[in-house]
């Protein structure tokens, strides 16, 4: 019973800690703006199917390329679909795919990086050269190849994006591990005879977790841009699913006389990316990591 109390106490401490970090993040204007934007997008993604005024795939020749009005707030596109409806729905796929993609990137990149940093030697050398080799391949070409071979379903996109964005995390995690590996508490654990897994889990992860999480948050925004690029090129989600990248791609030819159909998705996409970036920076500052001193990878 008593030991239960202790774990509960610890749990509460962690929640408190998370709340504390959020509070610190929100205490600066940039952090508050970032958090607000991200929160807005997440809530929008959750409730948009219920508040969308029109059917996103309803085509109508009568309403083609209408300018913004009281009926169609953001106007209509070349097929007569309501741009407002499609914009608020357009973030859903992007957010879901990139969120899970980032999680995968964090997991494999982080764990592999920590492992390499800990064991060092030949294994480290080989793995890092392989990672370097992958870093030298233009990811968009590789993605195009994967997507054309396996299709554009989310089951393919999530792991593929997760893989390509995890490479950089390997390096960050390895560098962060190198920072702590020379410390005496690791030497002490080694001398006691703990296994590598136990050292990674108990001694290293609590100390590199923050750096890797911040890196993951940054990767999320990059991945969002990457995913939209794929859609823009026609390799992301397939029509008629509303998606910002796809919307920009379809509307860009008509930009000169129907600018509204391209501006709305651009604002949606860039505000989310800026929001995530600001949040990640505030997150890093709240955790006491100064990103400007870390070498970009």
């Amino acid at each position: 019973m008593e030991s239960n109390l202790i774990t509960e106490d610890k749990h509460k401490n962690k929640l408190e800690k998370a709340f504390e970090i959020l509070k610190t993040m929100a205490s600066k204007p940039s952090g508050l703006i970032g958090l607000t934007i991200v929160l807005f997008h997440v809530i929008l993604a959750l409730i948009s199917p219920y508040i969308a005024p029109y059917d996103y795939k309803a085509i109508s020749p009568n309403t083609m390329l209408l300018a913004p009005s009281a009926e169609h707030w953001f106007g209509t596109d070349s097929l007569g679909r309501d741009v407002f409806t499609r914009t608020i729905l357009g973030g859903r796929t992007a957010l879901t795919v990139t969120f899970f993609g980032s999680l995968i990137a964090l997991l494999w990149g982080g764990l592999l990086g920590i492992f390499c940093g800990l064991v060092g030697g030949k294994i480290d050398d080989v793995v890092m050269r392989v990672v370097d080799a992958f870093l030298s391949i233009p990811w968009i070409l590789a993605m195009l190849l994967i997507v054309s071979l396996l299709g554009t379903s989310t089951e393919v996109l999530i792991p593929a994006l997760g893989f390509f964005y995890g490479k950089g995390i390997v390096r960050v995690a390895r560098a962060a591990t190198h920072d702590v590996i020379a410390k005496d508490f690791i030497v002490s654990a080694r001398a006691r005879g703990h296994s590598n897994m136990s050292i990674i889990w108990n001694e290293i992860i609590p100390n590199v977790r923050d750096a890797i999480l911040v890196e993951g948050a940054m990767r999320w925004s990059w991945m969002l841009l990457g995913f939209s690029s794929l859609s823009f090129l026609g390799f992301g989600v397939s029509p008629p699913t509303p998606d910002w990248g796809l919307m920009i791609s379809n509307a860009r030819g008509l930009m000169s006389f129907a600018y509204w159909s391209v501006i709305a998705p651009i604002v949606g996409l860039s505000s989310l990316i800026i929001g995530i970036n600001l949040t990640a920076d505030a997150f890093a500052k709240a955790l006491g990591i100064d990103r400007s001193t870390k070498a970009p990878v």
Binding site: K10, D184, F185, V187, S188, A191, R192, P206, N207
Partner: peptide
Amino acid sequence: DLRAIQLIFQNPDESLNPNHTVEQ
């Protein structure tokens, strides 16, 4: 044998994991 020989280090700032409680 590992148990029988233990080490204490010079600098306790480095020899204790900063993210662990004394209990851990």
